[in-house]
Design a protein around this nucleic acid. Structure first.
Length: 481
RNA sequence: GUCCCGUUCGUCUAGCCAGGUCCAGGACACCGGGUUUUCAUCCCGGCAACAGGGGUUCGAAUCCCCUACGGGACGCCA
């Protein structure tokens, strides 16, 4: 590794939904590596996809990483001299560099419509031929380009990939990987809405922000040659690439929220200690040595080396995470133990939310914990509950709940008003009796038919817990059937 | 389909780079036993893996090749 330059690394989440365990995983290794080398860690928000953008997401990313006590030196929240740190605020920069490539003949405008591209792809799939852009607009005359532009024809900017030869990429963990240029097609750099794609924004920003090591997940390996070509087109030095293994579901596919709870907020709500989460994540791919499994972030900082990273994709095993958490709970001092419960379970803010929902249902306070346990627990016991409405098939029911989950996933602001709207809309669409719809949801999310008003209750419970319980009870129903 | 990456107990992994000390070590889970008036903790024990084949070598989990399997990528997503 380059000894001269100060180590600068970055994490580049896109604010599209729940902050993910994968983000924490990558952040951990970036953090450790930067600290170990007296370097700097940058948080850069990659908000270039307007359709998937969720306004609340950036704040949640920051909150989740703060929960884990992983701090960065530069970012949209703390500033820094290489800002702005949100890509949506850097559009002029990307535009300028894209124009630069066009003028150097290394990129070109493409007027192909999305329809044509998807037809092309379909045809390629049917014929079993090579996938990728066919280069239709690659050699348009400048008159043609200008006239199309004058007509305001929507266009994108594409990078001209070399037509032959091999593109070597250097991965710190895997060595040199040679990719045949024929495998690559002309990537879009600027979308028709003027926003850059990941490839352009990422390379430009990594360069301008003087990133020395790109530590990211393995799924990026196959995009790396595109990035290498971009670095070459700009005549910029490449950073060192370090691709970490991908976290996996039980079935070994890339970890996903469909098959696992992946939201950091979920684990926080469940009562996993941040120290335990970091320790667990560190164990995914890295080993401390000496048969030592329980160690602090500081201890990891002393011992960490990429040499001890293993490349097989580790399965995210919640059982082991919980065992680790248990070990950390054992070691909590009396004060920290009490503080944790007060802060996370019975904190004033949460209790205030419960006040109006629970007050009228108590004739003495000793009923509180028992009656409202679902406000404090993670998963519920569905044993003995008849969730499935009479006269509805399991298949139909599952379809409805899955659809509901999708809507909830995409909900940006988790509040009574929005929830109510989602429920009303769906109920109207499926035209079930209200009771057939609301009661199962109530059972699934609270484990009891005697709960405070549903929407208010769900609003208080929060997105992670509610979605997890819906998912969970669906699994329970499938197993039972 | 094409390309790329990977492959040690069910799971996380040590060992591999510098071949012998590995009939493969630790941890989770599981099973059994003990301590505990219950439960949990804790302690002890057990089960369980070098993907397959070929080569190199006196000797291969370790080096090389092939195959299989798993995964990822092939988007106006990141």
């Amino acid at each position: 590794m380059d000894q001269q330059k100060k180590v600068r690394v970055r994490i580049a989440p896109s604010p599209t939904g729940d902050p993910h365990v994968g983000l924490a995983y990558i952040t951990l290794f970036n953090y450790v590596f930067s600290k170990q080398n007296a370097g700097e860690l940058v948080l850069r928000i990659e908000d270039t996809d307007r359709t998937r953008y969720r306004r609340s997401s950036e704040e949640r990313i920051i909150r989740s990483l703060n929960w884990l006590n992983l701090k960065w030196d530069e970012g949209p929240d703390v500033g820094g001299k290489f800002g702005p740190y949100r890509q949506s605020e850097r559009l002029d920069i990307y535009k300028k560099y894209a124009e630069d490539l066009i003028s150097k003949g290394k990129a070109y405008r493409c007027f192909c419509t999305p329809e044509r591209l998807s037809q092309m792809r379909q045809k390629q799939k049917d014929e079993g031929s090579r996938f990728g852009y066919d280069g239709k607009c690659r050699n348009l005359s400048s008159e043609k380009v200008n006239s199309l532009l004058a007509q305001k024809t929507p266009s994108v900017v594409r990078l001209k990939m070399p037509e032959d030869g091999v593109i070597p990429i250097r991965d710190h963990l895997r060595g040199v990987i040679e990719i045949d240029a024929s495998q690559l097609d002309d990537q879009i750099l600027i979308k028709s809405d003027g926003f850059p794609t990941y490839h352009l924004a990422n390379v430009v920003d990594d360069h301008l922000m003087q990133i020395t090591h790109v530590i990211r997940a393995e799924e990026w390996i196959s995009s790396t040659p595109k990035h290498v070509v971009l670095y070459q087109a700009f005549s910029w030095p490449e950073p060192e690439f370090i691709h970490l293994p991908l976290l996996r579901n039980q079935d070994r596919s890339k970890i996903s929220k469909r098959k696992n709870p992946t939201s950091l907020d979920f684990y926080r709500r469940k009562g996993v200690l941040p120290e335990a989460m970091l320790n667990f994540l560190a164990l995914m791919g890295w080993s401390y040595g000496e048969d030592k499994e329980i160690f602090s972030l500081d201890q990891m900082l002393e011992k960490f080396s990429f040499k001890n990273v293993s490349l097989g994709g580790p399965i995210f095993d919640i059982q082991k995470l919980l065992w680790l958490n248990q070990q950390y709970i054992q070691d909590l001092s009396e004060d920290s133990f009490i503080k944790h419960i007060q802060k996370n379970l019975f904190n004033e803010g949460y209790l205030r939310n419960l006040y109006s929902l629970t007050k009228s249902r108590l004739n003495s306070f000793d009923q509180f914990v028992d009656k409202f346990s679902f406000f404090f627990s993670g998963e519920l016991d569905y044993q003995g509950l008849s969730i499935l409405p009479k006269n509805r098939s399991l298949t139909d029911f599952k379809k409805v709940i899955k659809n509901l989950l999708e809507r909830l996933d995409n909900l940006d602001n988790w509040d009574e008003k929005n929830l109510k709207e989602i429920f009303q809309n769906q109920l109207q669409e499926i035209a079930w009796k209200p009771k057939e719809y609301y009661m199962p949801i109530r059972l699934m999310t609270t484990g009891t038919k005697d709960s405070p008003p549903l929407v208010e209750t769900l609003a208080v419970l929060g997105s992670e817990i509610v979605r997890y319980r819906l998912q969970n009870s669906l699994t329970y129903l499938s197993k039972k059937a």
